[in-house]
Simulated assay, not measured.
Amino acid sequence: MDEQLQTLAYAKKTAIELAVQFGPKLLVALLILVAGYYVGRWVGRLTDSMLAKLGLDEPLRVLLVRIVRILVLGLFFIMALQNLGVQLLPLIAGLGVAGAGVALAMQGVLGNLAAGLTILFTRPFHMGEYISIAEEEGMVEDIKLFHTVLSHPDRSRIVIPNRKIVGEILHNFGTLRQLDVVVNVAYNTDIPQALAAIRDLLAAHPKILQEPEPFIRVLALADSSVQIAIRPWTTAVDFYATAGDVTQAVLETFRDRGITIPFPQREVRLLGAA
């Protein structure tokens, strides 16, 4: 019984000595970390306002602000460790060895990270633009460090790893897209009249842009018809709906004005009949 009491008394004495010795240092270290958190937020807001004045894109600004905050917090964390008397050189060496192992185990993730940084700094596309990449296409909805999110016209979302984007052929349509509608008319059609009818219906459509100017030209002389190319511009958001609207409007306008859209025809002659 006396031995147990002595053990408890010794443990209590040791705890008090440790609290007296390290308690103030631990409290100061916690205060340093709290101060680092608030200083990091303040420096982050200041950095964000400066980068906004430079006209940088939001994803790049967010990345740089996060890096600044992490650096500030890391500086205060080192100060807190020094206050506790931690030897930093062995700690840094251990972190370096662990970091090398993690890098080998996460090559794919780090590849996406490197590609994401490349996208953010080179800016081959921006949010809100319509792109085609890696056999996928859609509106750029978000650009992350590890992946890029596209919104598809069918209301689905496409998530592409950034390493699949960097180094590939990218088709960036921007915020505008050009329709490609081809209509056939009979050879006896008054071509200027047909072109004028197309211009009128395009000018009346609310989603067709007049600048850039719509491209309306005779495209080819086919076997049984004259092909006319109709290539106006619209926003990327309205592309698919407007393509259908223009095709329907052309059909209705040609019917109203008596312009014939011929069926495929082929003339067959029989020679040497008995």
Results as ranks from 00 to 15, higher is better:
residue 116 G to V: 06
residue 116 G to M: 07
residue 117 L to D: 00
residue 118 T to L: 10
residue 121 F to L: 14
residue 122 T to D: 10
residue 123 R to D: 06
residue 123 R to E: 11
residue 124 P to H: 09
residue 127 M to H: 00
residue 128 G to R: 09
residue 129 E to K: 08
residue 130 Y to C: 02
residue 131 I to G: 01
residue 131 I to C: 04
residue 131 I to D: 01
residue 132 S to T: 09
residue 133 I to K: 01
residue 133 I to F: 01
residue 134 A to N: 14
residue 135 E to T: 08
residue 136 E to K: 15
residue 137 E to H: 14
residue 137 E to S: 12
residue 137 E to V: 02
residue 138 G to C: 06
residue 138 G to W: 10
residue 139 M to V: 08
residue 142 D to S: 12
residue 143 I to N: 02
residue 143 I to G: 01
residue 143 I to A: 03
residue 144 K to Y: 12
residue 145 L to N: 03
residue 145 L to S: 09
residue 146 F to N: 05
residue 147 H to Q: 10
residue 147 H to K: 10
residue 148 T to S: 11
residue 150 L to T: 02
residue 150 L to M: 05
residue 150 L to E: 01
residue 151 S to P: 00
residue 152 H to C: 07
residue 152 H to G: 01
residue 153 P to C: 07
residue 154 D to P: 07
residue 154 D to L: 12
residue 155 R to E: 14
residue 155 R to H: 15
residue 157 R to V: 14
residue 157 R to M: 10
residue 158 I to E: 03
residue 158 I to P: 01
residue 159 V to D: 08
residue 159 V to M: 13
residue 161 P to Y: 05
residue 161 P to Q: 03
residue 162 N to Q: 09
residue 165 I to V: 08
residue 165 I to N: 02
residue 165 I to S: 02
residue 165 I to D: 00
residue 167 G to K: 08
residue 171 H to P: 00
residue 171 H to M: 10
residue 172 N to H: 05
residue 173 F to N: 11
residue 174 G to F: 06
residue 174 G to L: 10
residue 175 T to N: 11
residue 175 T to V: 14
residue 176 L to T: 10
residue 177 R to G: 14
residue 177 R to E: 05
residue 178 Q to Y: 05
residue 178 Q to M: 10
residue 181 V to S: 09
residue 181 V to E: 05
residue 182 V to H: 15
residue 185 V to K: 07
residue 185 V to L: 06
residue 186 A to P: 06
residue 186 A to E: 12
residue 187 Y to L: 11
residue 188 N to P: 04
residue 188 N to I: 13
residue 190 D to K: 11
residue 190 D to Q: 11
residue 191 I to R: 08
residue 192 P to T: 05
residue 195 L to M: 11
residue 196 A to V: 02
residue 198 I to H: 03
residue 198 I to C: 03
residue 199 R to Q: 12
residue 203 A to I: 02
residue 204 A to L: 15
residue 204 A to C: 12
residue 204 A to P: 04
residue 206 P to V: 07
residue 207 K to N: 11
residue 207 K to P: 00
residue 207 K to H: 14
residue 208 I to L: 08
residue 208 I to P: 06
residue 208 I to W: 09
residue 212 P to I: 13
residue 213 E to S: 14
residue 213 E to C: 04
residue 214 P to F: 01
residue 214 P to D: 02
residue 216 I to C: 03
residue 216 I to L: 05
residue 216 I to A: 03
residue 218 V to Q: 13
residue 219 L to W: 13
residue 221 L to N: 08
